[in-house]
């Protein structure tokens, strides 16, 4: 597999072309935006934490490349039901995959991002939504919803 095919794996292209959880969920009451100054892309993550501190709803808005859109989309499917510490652990796992180019032992969809390792300029694309999500979990909930 060439570096290029490894970067744009089928799973990434699938999420880039048909992103899951695009938009603001009606119940979401926390949000944060991440900016990628290199390209001007941005990603806003909306979410809701239940009483146990677990993500009960999550969605994203913004425009980005295939890598950042797929990353945001896959992230939303991964983070539902997770607490902030669990989300931090998942993000640490992704960062490890990006830094080493090696998929983790236990299979999960984040392994699809191993190919980004060979494209250092694109690593920020793969982490943009995650930074926004973790930031959103730290914000105060909006009182209106």
């Amino acid at each position: 597999m060439s570096d290029f095919d490894d970067l744009y794996r089928d799973l990434i292209l699938d999420h880039a072309k048909r992103p899951r959880n695009r938009g603001k969920p009606p119940t979401a009451n926390r949000a944060a935006t991440g900016d990628n100054p290199t390209c001007g892309d941005n990603c806003t993550v909306h979410l809701r934490l239940d009483d146990g501190g677990r993500i009960s709803a999550i969605g994203f808005e913004g425009s980005g490349c295939a890598i950042s859109t797929a990353s945001a989309s896959i992230m939303t499917t991964q983070l539902k039901g997770k607490t902030a510490p669990e989300a931090e652990t998942a993000f640490a796992g992704l960062k490890d995959i990006l830094a080493t180019g090696k998929p983790p032992e236990d299979f999960n969809e984040l392994a699809a991002f191993a190919g980004v390792h060979a494209f250092p300029a694109r690593i920020k694309c793969a982490t943009l939504a995650w930074h926004a999500a973790l930031e959103a979990m730290k914000t105060e909930p909006a009182s209106s919803s």
């Binding site: 290029f4 744009y8 290199t38 390209c39 001007g40 490349c65 295939a66 859109t69 494209f119 694109r122």
Partner: peptide, 23 residues
């Protein structure tokens, strides 16, 4: 319409073409 500038630049680079994408 369907391809972000950074994806275009990465793809074209595979064909040996140096372009610039972004703002």
């Amino acid at each position: 319409k369907d391809a972000h500038a950074h994806d275009v630049v990465t793809f074209a680079d595979q064909d040996g073409i140096a372009l610039r994408g972004g703002h």
